[in-house]
Amino acid sequence: MLREWPPGYGGIERVAHELAEVWGGTVWSFDAQGRGWAEQDALPVTYKRRRLFCTPSIGRLVLPLPSRALWALLTSSHPLHGHLPSPGVLLLLVLARFVRPKRRITAHWHFFFEPRGSLRQRVFGFYQWLALRVVAQLSGVVTTSPLLRDELVRSGCHSNRLIVLPCCLSAEQENQGLAIQRLPPSSIVKDPMRVLFIGRLGSYKRLDWLMESLSQLITPWCLDVVGDGPSRAAFEAMASDLFSSSTLGEVQFFGQSSELDKNHRLRLADVLVLPSDSSNEAFGIVQLEAMASGLPALAFQLPRSGMGWVGELPDLPWSQNQKDLGMVLQRLADDPLLRCHLGAQARQRYVDVFSRKIWLDQLTQWTHA
């Protein structure tokens, strides 16, 4: 596998880590963010790793320098799987294809950028345009949902070279989630609905949209916010402005939490909301954690994102639009029986579609195809 450094808690990093754990080969990596020397791995690493020497980074762009390690990577006959998005990984996939045209070279496509007006966004847009043309020529492409598969086909990839492999939880995470025993409806009927948000406080996560929707409710609720980031102070100020005099709602910020604390919050919650507004969030791993724990996971249906697809439940039809989030939260706040029913339905969807056994079967079939 070829990827950026290091294994972290983000969805892309966790998926790459799980693939490396299962495949057991060498992971070639380079430090595009300048963090590999100073930070410990967030996840335990047992597989072999080799670091590639590269130029200093310009933003996220680094270029590999000539070295024995680079030559070994390019001339190897072993299959090579590149984890995108990464300009450096994309370049090395092209070089590896040039050096050994018959080698099995594949890529993992996690999300589509949304190019806008800024120079940085235009650069991302050019990278994406180039990446789509490169991956269309590779031996195969893995993506995370049927929606992204369809977008890749529309962008020029051959459907017979595409496979949908949803993101997965580690065996430990899955076991912890499935072991959680939800309280019966009779035990929670008088309690306020407990909403959970887990994510980085900044960028496209849109915790502000969630708080605005909760401010519309006429039934008691509480919101637990797990995570940290550059917008935390602004979100805390917003919560104070909206709810300091409220008798119905309360917001608590817990910051960056340990896995043990996060599991505790999942155990207490009634519903998880992932209110991201960008295709950069194409598949939220936290949705799987919630569903395995027996929680419905609400997310928006966005172009070029499978986020809404992940948590779809047959007995909770809604537009999956931001304007209707308050309405669906009010419905859940009013009906503890429905919340419990949807939680059981979410867990069953996890078992049927996203469980580790199914993920391993799909990965094995594709690897040996």
Rank of each mutant, 00 (worst) to 15 (best):
R154P: 03
P166V: 08
C168Y: 09
G140A: 05
C168L: 13
P184H: 08
L178I: 00
L132D: 05
N175I: 01
V189D: 09
Q137D: 11
G156I: 03
E174Q: 06
N175C: 07
Q128L: 04
G156L: 02
Y127R: 05
E174D: 01
L132K: 09
R122Y: 08
G156E: 03
V141Q: 00
L169K: 01
L130C: 11
H158A: 15
I180S: 04
R149F: 04
L162Y: 04
V189E: 13
Y127M: 07
R182S: 10
L165Y: 02
H158P: 14
G177Q: 04
V141G: 00
E151W: 00
R182A: 08
R154L: 10
L148G: 05
L132E: 09
Q128S: 05
W129M: 11
L162T: 00
I163Y: 08
E151G: 03
S155N: 06
Q176W: 13
G125F: 04
V141I: 02
Q176E: 13
R161E: 11
I163K: 11
R149Y: 04
Q173I: 05
S145V: 07
F126H: 15
Q173M: 09
W129Y: 12
G125H: 07
L178Y: 00
C167D: 11
F126D: 12
L148T: 09
V189L: 15
S139W: 10
R149A: 12
P146Q: 06
V142W: 14
A131C: 06
R122G: 13
Q121W: 13
Q137V: 09
H158V: 14
L132R: 09
G140M: 01
T143P: 00
L178N: 01
Q181Y: 07
R122Q: 14
A179I: 01
H158Y: 14
L147E: 15
E172D: 05
L183T: 11
